[in-house]
Amino acid sequence: EEERTFTNEEEARKAKKEAEKRGLRVTVTKDGTTWRVRIG
């Protein structure tokens, strides 16, 4: 499991799409101005 943080919503969405392409489970949460993308 890996967690990545982004300040840019577009980049967070891109990371989510890429992980889904690899067949991984992805959770995206917004924490104030930060987007957290949890993969795995």
Rank of each mutant, 00 (worst) to 15 (best):
E1G: 12
E1W: 15
E1A: 12
E1M: 14
E1Q: 10
E1T: 12
E2N: 09
E2D: 08
E2L: 13
E3Q: 06
E3G: 05
E3H: 05
E3D: 08
E3L: 10
E3R: 03
E3P: 04
R4I: 14
T5W: 14
T5L: 12
T5F: 13
F6P: 01
T7Q: 10
T7N: 11
N8E: 06
N8G: 04
N8K: 06
N8D: 09
E9Y: 15
E9I: 09
E9K: 07
E9H: 06
E10C: 08
E10A: 12
E10Y: 12
E10D: 11
E10P: 05
E11P: 01
E11F: 04
E11G: 05
E11D: 13
A12G: 01
A12I: 02
A12R: 00
R13I: 15
R13T: 13
R13F: 15
R13Q: 14
K14P: 01
K14V: 09
K14I: 11
K14F: 09
A15E: 04
A15I: 06
K16H: 07
K16R: 08
K16G: 14
K17F: 14
K17L: 14
K17Y: 14
E18T: 05
E18K: 04
E18R: 04
E18A: 08
A19G: 04
E20K: 04
E20Y: 04
K21A: 14
K21Q: 12
K21S: 13
K21W: 06
R22G: 05
R22F: 07
G23P: 00
G23D: 02
G23I: 01
G23W: 02
L24E: 04
R25A: 09
R25F: 11
R25M: 10
R25L: 11
V26E: 00
V26M: 02
V26D: 00
T27S: 09
T27H: 07
T27V: 09
V28Y: 03
V28N: 00
V28Q: 01
T29N: 04
T29D: 05
T29M: 09
T29C: 09
K30H: 13
K30M: 08
K30V: 10
K30W: 15
D31H: 09
D31I: 13
G32E: 05
T33G: 13
T33Q: 13
T33Y: 10
T33V: 10
T33K: 10
T34H: 11
T34R: 08
W35M: 02
R36W: 08
R36M: 08
R36T: 13
V37L: 12
R38L: 14
R38Q: 10
R38M: 11
R38S: 12
R38D: 06
I39Q: 03
I39T: 05
G40L: 15
G40P: 04
